[in-house]
Design a protein around this nucleic acid. Structure first.
Length: 116
RNA sequence: GGAGUUGGCCAGACGAUCGCGGUAUUGUGCAUCUUUGAUGCGGGAUACGGAGGAAAGUCCGGGCUCCAUAGGGCAGGGUGCCAGGUAACGCCUGGGGGGCGCGAGCCUACGGAAAGUGCAGCAGAAAGGAAACCGCCUUUCUUGGACCGCUUAAGGCUGUUUGUUCAGCUCGACGUGGUUUAUGAGGAGGGUAAGGGUGAAAAGGUGCGGUAAGAGCGCACCGCGCGGCUGGUAACAGGCGCGGCGAUGGUAAACCCCACCUGGAGCAAGACCAAAUAGGAAUCCGUUGGCUGCGGCCCGCAGUGGAUUCGGGUAGGUCGCUAGAGGCCAGCGGCGACGCUGGUCCCAGAUGAAUGAUCGUUCACGACAGAACCCGGCUUAUCGGCCGACUCCUCUA
RNA sequence: GCGGGUGUAGCUCAGGGGUAGAGCAUCUCGUUGCCAACGAGAAUGUCGACAGUUCAAAUCUGUUCACCCGCU
């Protein structure tokens, strides 16, 4: 389930994270920005640029994988707003590669997958 | 066994768990109201089904929607061997011509240049009702060479004379006349299109005869044109006769001519519901007309005052949206594309836009790639695999 | 998704069948003590790619690739 309350909805939400991120984690394909919020849960924002990933199918897969990874996060850690950005290297990366990259970068933010 | 041609099919498979979007059924929460029921939204359970052969490029054709029911003329655009198929096509099938290949087979924008206009740089003599540069032939003139005749200075020989001399013969510069038959150079006139050279292209080709040299000048074959005939629906093919071919070169993906086709825009079309502006100001034009629909023009039809500037404002939802020139099977007609008849099936419909992740088994380890109104084609991308038909070569019997 | 447009020198653009140009930039020389400006000269293109038509293609035709613009 991916409810509206778990998403970054407005431009203001996004710009807050862009402007003043508490944590950054990235590699050739991806960049994650995170900022602590006052809410009870994490929120996710996606920015998958057409410039970086030209085909719609590939963009959808990346977004889906990011949501999947977000979904299995442990909820114990302090709640954060997280934005997933693509970088030019994402164009030629395979879906398994993207998945590994997401897992790794989420871990660097101190957010590991819940054991359940 | 090897090499090759061609038609069609498949697009990893199976299972489990989680997740994504749709439809149906069924609970549920919230909101509204015509308040014990409806409608809408959110989320849940169950069941069913969920990308392609190219979904791509947008190169053609059609359906559908609106503009007039899609109308008339001109312009513009497209197609271009013939016949058929089709809703239609620039597509497909069959046939013809041409080209390539030993062959199966493949390729082919393939109407008209004797209706007209244009174009062809450079080179070349000449580039389109052509001309004669070199060359070849011929007539004539001039001038050489060679030969012959005549004449003659000098010379030679013989005779004569003491000698000068004289006579005869011979040779013969120069001059002059003629010939030139395997003759040089030049001028003028004529013939010629064989040959040379230039060019992408030089006005039928090859051979024999013929001629002063040559030439369709004549003949044979091929090519071309015209007219019958035969076969074929036709394109066209075959054969006969005629024309000697200075006529009719090339280019029409140059203008053009001929035949046929062609109105415009596109689902962001368009329809409906709700909200908002609901026409506020200024200037100009006009009411036999103008403007808009309408895409170049005119006619016609319909609607209506119009244009510009300033100021203000809206863009949320539903339908269109998938049952269709549909798929599969069988029979019949047709060489075939395809058509007809019967049976059977329902097979994605999203709107930030759905197919993935994990695990297991297995194989030949998986390419190009993702629907957005729908369909028929073409083109382009593509790992491989399967089936059928055929050709050539080699070997064995 | 639908519609339209553009690819020519390092950059901005002409050229629309006869063998490719302009401006700026670059290089050389002159001028100057040096630089700029100025003057003189030079170099530079598979005309986005592949086929076709033509004697000949940047130009005409088809296919293809890349980029840009408009419509919610």
């Amino acid at each position: 389930m991916f409810r509206p309350s778990q998403r970054l909805l407005t431009a203001a939400d996004y710009s807050q994270v862009f402007k003043d991120p508490d944590h950054k984690a990235g590699q050739k394909e991806l960049l994650l920005l995170a900022r602590h919020n006052d809410l009870a849960q994490h929120r996710l924002g996606l920015a998958v640029a057409k410039k970086h990933v030209p085909t719609a199918v590939k963009r959808n897969i990346i977004k889906r994988l990011a949501r999947e990874q977000f979904r299995v996060l442990a909820q114990e850690t302090p709640a954060m707003d997280i934005v997933v950005l693509t970088r030019p290297g994402a164009r030629d990366a395979s879906s398994t590669h993207i998945k590994e990259a997401l897992k790794k970068q989420f871990a660097r933010l101190g957010l590991s997958a819940s054991p359940s």
